[in-house]
Design a protein around this nucleic acid. Sequence first.
DNA 1: CTTAAATTGTGAATGTGAACACAATCACAT
DNA 2: ATGTGATTGTGTTCACATTCACAATTTAAG
Lengths: 218, 218
Amino acid sequence: MTYRDVPTETMDRLFLYMRALTCLRREKSETVSSSRLAEICNVNAPKVRKDLSYFGEFGVRGVGYNVNELLDHIRRILKLDRSVNVALIGAGNIGRALITHSSFQLEGFNISMAFDIDREKIGTRVGSITVEDMMDFPDRVEEEGIDLAILAVPEEVAPEIARIIADTNIISILSFAPCELCMPENVKVTCVDLSMEMARLLYNSRQTVTRKKKERKP
Amino acid sequence: MTYRDVPTETMDRLFLYMRALTCLRREKSETVSSSRLAEICNVNAPKVRKDLSYFGEFGVRGVGYNVNELLDHIRRILKLDRSVNVALIGAGNIGRALITHSSFQLEGFNISMAFDIDREKIGTRVGSITVEDMMDFPDRVEEEGIDLAILAVPEEVAPEIARIIADTNIISILSFAPCELCMPENVKVTCVDLSMEMARLLYNSRQTVTRKKKERKP
DNA sequence: CTTAAATTGTGAATGTGAACACAATCACAT
DNA sequence: ATGTGATTGTGTTCACATTCACAATTTAAG
């Protein structure tokens, strides 16, 4: 099932709603109103309602939305109702942080394998995972059914690694290398660039007073 | 100087252009055409030209844009022509990764101080920085003129730390805690949630074939 | 000097998303 | 039962952003 006439922006916000609902569930909230949900996500209430209404009538008038129910609906819409297998490439500082920190292991994403090209690191353990040889990556990925790769290697080796990934059937890469990766067209790469986030953040803080307040993109 | 009638979206894309230009400069490119810049940023060429034209005429017809010159212009527009002082709070795995990894120390952002509440960590060195006591944070921040704080502490202590920050005049926080922080209205918080990034990425990869290609938001 | 190729800058048209007001619905108290 | 307060769902209007086509300008070659 694909949702053809749903605005791209709405689709985007669904991920925000998902995160907020996950928080609310953790806090044992039973129901949530559109205005509360909007508040958490930094949007406005009518937008929340309109967004949700594209997919059905999930709320109860006069009451609000059932947190668990709505979360399930959204997860199904976003095709996140099955858990996702993630492979980490690069067992350096970032890699270790990602595996160790529980907050990244959120809801259905589990980093189940780690790879490196460094002989020193291969065979060592990070958390409960043993670092494997990057040479074995293509075979192992197919065996284990990996959906997504996290690229946490130094910029210099990123292109080399990229070539290895390109030969597998992985089509989703989350990269920490601050550069363009050369990839086949069907492979989607998201580049995590914290300095860009900081720049945006800083700019917006500085504008708060002078500029008409406007909601920020997620 | 504020830019009143510039679309929000244009403002947002400026950060993308900045990153791309930084890359290009590193690769010693002298000039760049709108189409090449568009390619790197995953947008289209007319959009790049229109965006830039809101701020002046930076290009040369028949030739393109001078990389250095354009980068300077954009940095000035985004008020990033002076370097930004960043304080890290939390000297755990993430914190260490941020300091160690050179790619985060990008262009004008320097993490110059680190704080923690853990007695064990205070006084230790991370890279070239000595971890200080969080109790001293308010004073030290004022002394050193910190523009932005990175919050890389476990979720449990995040609210406590948030209160300390709230009493300083820091108005920009980049948080790795996957939860809402209670902050005064004028303080902007950007929450880095990698699992949400992963979810978006995965959804978009899966849609590539069935859905009409559409540019992704930055 | 003239022509061709490349590339920017931009006004007008088009498309898309946001806002808003209000009708519809529900829970609950009396 | 019935009214009241709360909250959702949505059609319409409006504002904003994107696209497109083309004029303007530059470089380079003949």
